[in-house]
Amino acid sequence: MLMKTNRPPKARRGRREEASARKLPIPAPDELSDDEAANLYRLMTWLSPSFPVGAFSYSSGIEWAVEAGDITDAASLGQWLASMLVNGGGICDAIFLAHIHRAATAGDDALLGEIAELASAFVPSRERHLETTAQGRAFIEIARAAWHHGALDRFITACGGHFAYPVAVGLVGAAHHIPLAPTLHAFLHAVVSNWISAGARLVPLGQTDSQRVLAKLEPDVAATAKRALSVSLDDLSSTTFRADLASLRHETQYTRLFRS
Score class of each variant (00 low, 15 high):
residue 3 M to L: 11
residue 4 K to N: 04
residue 4 K to G: 10
residue 7 R to N: 06
residue 8 P to E: 13
residue 13 R to S: 11
residue 18 E to S: 06
residue 18 E to I: 12
residue 20 S to W: 15
residue 22 R to A: 13
residue 23 K to N: 12
residue 26 I to D: 09
residue 28 A to H: 10
residue 30 D to W: 01
residue 31 E to K: 04
residue 33 S to V: 11
residue 35 D to A: 11
residue 40 L to I: 14
residue 41 Y to H: 14
residue 42 R to P: 07
residue 44 M to H: 11
residue 45 T to K: 05
residue 46 W to V: 11
residue 48 S to W: 02
residue 48 S to Y: 00
residue 55 A to K: 02
residue 61 G to M: 03
residue 62 I to S: 01
residue 62 I to N: 03
residue 64 W to T: 14
residue 64 W to E: 13
residue 66 V to H: 00
residue 66 V to P: 02
residue 67 E to Q: 10
residue 69 G to W: 04
residue 70 D to P: 01
residue 72 T to W: 00
residue 72 T to H: 05
residue 75 A to D: 15
residue 76 S to T: 13
residue 76 S to A: 02
residue 77 L to T: 10
residue 80 W to S: 14
residue 81 L to C: 07
residue 81 L to V: 13
residue 82 A to D: 13
residue 84 M to V: 06
residue 86 V to A: 01
residue 94 A to M: 08
residue 95 I to M: 04
residue 97 L to G: 02
residue 97 L to H: 03
residue 98 A to S: 10
residue 101 H to Y: 11
residue 104 A to T: 11
residue 107 G to T: 08
residue 110 A to H: 04
residue 113 G to Y: 12
residue 115 I to N: 06
residue 117 E to L: 10
residue 118 L to E: 12
residue 124 P to V: 14
residue 128 R to F: 14
residue 132 T to H: 08
residue 135 Q to T: 15
residue 136 G to K: 01
residue 137 R to M: 02
residue 137 R to F: 05
residue 138 A to K: 00
residue 138 A to H: 05
residue 141 E to A: 07
residue 141 E to V: 02
residue 143 A to C: 12
residue 144 R to T: 15
residue 147 W to F: 15
residue 151 A to K: 09
residue 152 L to K: 02
residue 153 D to Q: 05
residue 156 I to A: 07
residue 156 I to Q: 11
residue 164 A to L: 09
residue 164 A to F: 06
residue 166 P to G: 05
residue 168 A to R: 01
residue 173 G to A: 08
residue 175 A to T: 13
residue 176 H to Q: 09
residue 177 H to V: 13
residue 184 L to Q: 02
residue 187 F to E: 08
residue 190 A to I: 14
residue 193 S to M: 10
residue 195 W to R: 00
residue 195 W to Q: 06
residue 195 W to C: 12
residue 199 G to N: 07
residue 200 A to I: 05
residue 200 A to F: 03
residue 200 A to P: 05
residue 204 P to W: 11
residue 206 G to C: 08
residue 207 Q to T: 13
residue 209 D to R: 14
residue 211 Q to I: 14
residue 213 V to P: 00
residue 216 K to N: 02
residue 216 K to T: 11
residue 216 K to Y: 05
residue 217 L to Q: 00
residue 217 L to I: 10
residue 219 P to A: 00
residue 220 D to N: 12
residue 222 A to V: 13
residue 223 A to K: 08
residue 223 A to W: 03
residue 225 A to S: 06
residue 226 K to M: 07
residue 226 K to L: 10
residue 226 K to C: 06
residue 227 R to E: 04
residue 229 L to I: 13
residue 231 V to G: 02
residue 235 D to G: 08
residue 235 D to S: 12
residue 236 L to P: 06
residue 237 S to P: 02
residue 239 T to M: 00
residue 239 T to Q: 01
residue 241 F to D: 15
residue 245 L to C: 09
residue 249 R to A: 11
residue 249 R to Y: 12
residue 251 E to K: 05
residue 251 E to Q: 12
residue 254 Y to L: 15
residue 255 T to Y: 11
residue 258 F to A: 01
residue 260 S to W: 03
